[in-house]
């Protein structure tokens, strides 16, 4: 076997679409079980309270990357046989920044909003309507936006091509980066937790002092 099964087996369009449905079922199921069906849990990632999103995402990337590069090495699934995403630096930077803004403002990203919507979240349904609207705005403005959308087109650039190193080095570096990130976010969570609980107990102390003061006044008032 060399290449994706759909190509090797010359699958018909309906068969391939059915496979896409099955893959989608797996995708949606895992996203829900990962906890991505709630905006507050997704947003917690950006306030240093719960880095679940980052942990799941980096683990998934490393897992799929290791599988992909091993299959490439074994010539079972050569990288050249799958759809590698092309690089367009400027639109990917601007689009990425905007998608991050949309994420924290709206509470979801496109994939998680689908799972949240079927979980009964009204905000996710509204977010989905917003995506369709924003997407249509892009289509209507395409003539004006095309130069930006196609700026800095570099075609297929993989990280090891860019840095002129062996792909194994990048695979190792990315794995190491993920482990480092897991350690770092664990530390950040501890710091944020310590700070918020310190603030909460300070608040409690103030309330307690006020309560004591009020109780004292009441006692004084009750003296003959």
């Amino acid at each position: 076997m060399e290449g994706p099964l759909s190509v090797v087996l010359k699958m018909s369009h309906p068969t391939e679409m059915m496979i896409s449905v099955v893959i989608g079922i797996g995708f949606g199921f895992v996203l829900e079980r990962a906890g991505f069906g709630r905006a507050d849990r997704l947003a917690a990632n950006f306030y240093g309270r719960d880095f679940r999103v980052l942990r799941v995402m980096f683990t998934a990337i490393v897992t799929a990357m290791l599988g992909l590069y091993v299959l490439d090495l074994l010539a079972i699934l050569p990288l050249s046989s799958i759809g590698i995403l092309d690089t367009y630096l400027l639109p990917q930077i601007v689009g990425g920044l905007l998608l991050g803004v949309g994420f924290i403002v709206g509470g979801y990203c496109p994939g998680t909003s689908v799972v949240a919507a079927v979980s009964g979240k009204i905000d996710a349904v509204l977010f989905m309507l917003g995506i369709a609207f924003g997407s249509a705005v892009f289509t209507f403005g395409y003539d004006t936006l095309a130069p930006l959308a196609n700026a800095g087109a570099r075609g297929r650039v993989l990280l090891h091509d860019f840095f002129h190193v062996n792909s194994g080095i990048v695979v190792f570096a990315v794995s190491l980066f993920a482990v480092g990130a897991f350690w770092a976010v664990g530390r950040i969570e501890q710091l944020v937790r310590a700070r918020t609980s310190a603030r909460a107990s300070e608040h409690q102390d103030e309330e307690a002092t006020e309560a004591r003061g009020a109780a004292g006044l009441a006692r004084e008032g009750s003296l003959p």
Binding site: G102, G106, L126, G130, I131, A132, V137, F138
Partner: peptide, 14 residues
């Protein structure tokens, strides 16, 4: 939620 969705829809296309 609508505003964030609209920004995301535009951004994802870009």
């Amino acid at each position: 939620a609508v505003v964030g969705g609209a920004i995301s829809g535009f951004a994802a296309q870009l």
